[in-house]
Simulated assay, not measured.
Amino acid sequence: MHNFTYTANPGRILFGFGTLDKLADEIRNAGMTRVLLLSTPQQAEQVGAVAKSLGDLSAGIFSDARMHTPAEVTEQALKSLKSLGADGIVSLGGGSTIGLGKALALRTNLAQIVIPTTYAGSEMTPILGETTDGVKRTLRSEKVLPETVLYDVELTMSLPVEMSGLSGMNAVAHAVEALYCKEANPITALIAAEGVRALTDALPRIAQDGGDREARSDALYGAWLCGTCLGTVGMALHHKLCHAIGGAYDTPHAATHAIILPHALAYTAPAIPEAMERLRAALKTDDPAGRLYEIGREIGAPEGLQALGMPEDGIEHVVELSLRDPYWNPRPLEREALTLLLGDAFHGRPPSRH
């Protein structure tokens, strides 16, 4: 057994069908008396129903959460929170809403309860990404960790099938890299392998039948595990490529991850024999990278970066960005091999060995 360090993030987890019914009790148990409820405009009606059910525990609603957590939106929400006299935060939604809740917690030290409705996993991490003047910066702080997370499978039943698949593959990427990142350790490896197994088994079933309750439960369980990985270790080449592509060409976050994942894994595979053995078991295949590519086809992921609007000359630019400020990776970054990797990902070809 190698030496390792493992840090468990604090937090209370409620998981199951109908856990939203316990929200009022959780608010009281946390010592909150008047909470500000957050959502995106698309989920305003849903969060409005939750606010109504809470009665006097609801101080009000801010339903203008936006992707990438713009600082100006956070300032608007902060004014709303203060004017309403809220003493706690409840975030219902995906990464955009959860990010806003974290940004408010960072500034106020108020407690948070998070109710995820996608598989993104942000709720399990001490990570906050904020955008100011078009530049997104990331920080880590325990101040942004939610105190309580309510996973209610019922809330994911209406998540569109395509969004379910892409959001799920984004979560799988967290767990895959957790197996071989610089901070990898035996505890996270166990969590990561189970997260990969649960999600990759569930996502094709959801693609076939979005109303499959068992598949939905398995997917949310897997998303929780994958999010836990993201919250406890760092990342490697896959995330560097996705950040470079998304920052340069404003490609959709989850779709970018779904496309890049099999290719980044194929690139790194020769340097990570133990991680590959775990992935073979979790994915039930001798070719984990190839199976991840197949799952992308099964869930309807876009066929290549060109489908996301990235130009072909962007391949060279992304290679430059990746080499200029590289993330640690078990296999060193090589210009020619990275160019081939991104070429495959751009055209939607299966991953190849470089």
Results as ranks from 00 to 15, higher is better:
191 I>G: 04
192 A>I: 05
192 A>M: 02
193 A>V: 11
193 A>W: 02
194 E>N: 13
194 E>W: 04
194 E>T: 13
195 G>R: 13
197 R>D: 11
198 A>T: 14
198 A>Y: 07
199 L>G: 03
200 T>W: 05
203 L>H: 05
205 R>Y: 08
205 R>I: 05
205 R>Q: 10
208 Q>N: 11
208 Q>A: 15
208 Q>C: 12
208 Q>S: 14
210 G>W: 07
211 G>I: 07
212 D>V: 09
213 R>F: 02
214 E>V: 13
214 E>D: 14
214 E>N: 14
215 A>R: 08
215 A>M: 01
216 R>Y: 08
216 R>D: 07
217 S>N: 15
218 D>W: 14
218 D>N: 15
219 A>Q: 10
220 L>Q: 12
222 G>Q: 11
223 A>R: 09
224 W>G: 13
224 W>N: 14
225 L>H: 00
225 L>P: 10
226 C>V: 00
226 C>R: 14
227 G>K: 10
227 G>P: 06
228 T>V: 09
228 T>G: 12
228 T>N: 14
229 C>D: 07
230 L>Y: 00
232 T>G: 03
232 T>C: 10
237 L>G: 05
238 H>K: 03
239 H>P: 09
240 K>C: 02
242 C>T: 04
243 H>D: 03
244 A>V: 03
244 A>W: 13
244 A>D: 14
244 A>T: 08
245 I>F: 11
246 G>Y: 11
246 G>Q: 03
246 G>P: 08
247 G>W: 12
248 A>S: 13
248 A>H: 13
249 Y>R: 01
249 Y>F: 15
249 Y>A: 03
251 T>A: 11
252 P>D: 06
252 P>H: 01
253 H>R: 00
254 A>I: 00
255 A>P: 09
